[in-house]
Amino acid sequence: MIEIVTCVFLVVGAFFIFVAGLGILRMPDIFLRMSATTKAGTIGLGALLVGLAVFYHDIGIDARALATIGFVFLTAPVGAHRIGRIAYLVGLPLWEKTVKDELKGVYPQDACAPPGEVCMMPERRSGWPKTTPEAETES
């Protein structure tokens, strides 16, 4: 019985990690890729750890597995938020079928750079600028 429950949890977790790998290959945009990998990867690792906690039903191992689940569930959104915010500020192009850009015009133009330095403008969303004109003149 315990083996069957462990098998179910392991297969579910492995399937979610597989979906995360598929999503990071097939999604068109960094934000969609990040959505796929963060959610599916977190749920997949959580299900694998629950399977381990079910398999060894020992109090110490269960406590460590639950602590790892809690840590992953707390820190994966934090890291994804940091990377997503900085990818938006740096001006990575959105997918062309994006219907809503709620942050458009919210940040000032030089929000991603320290004072006196140049940053990629959020208006330049059609492809990558090689260098901004200010950066060329400055260097």
Binding site: I30, G41, G44
Partner: peptide, 20 residues
């Protein structure tokens, strides 16, 4: 940033391999 997201996925699935 794409590569950093990929690195995050690699770390997650390596932890999954260790658990399995």
């Amino acid at each position: 940033p794409d590569r950093i997201v990929a690195f995050e996925l690699i770390a997650t699935s390596s932890a999954g391999i260790i658990v399995v």
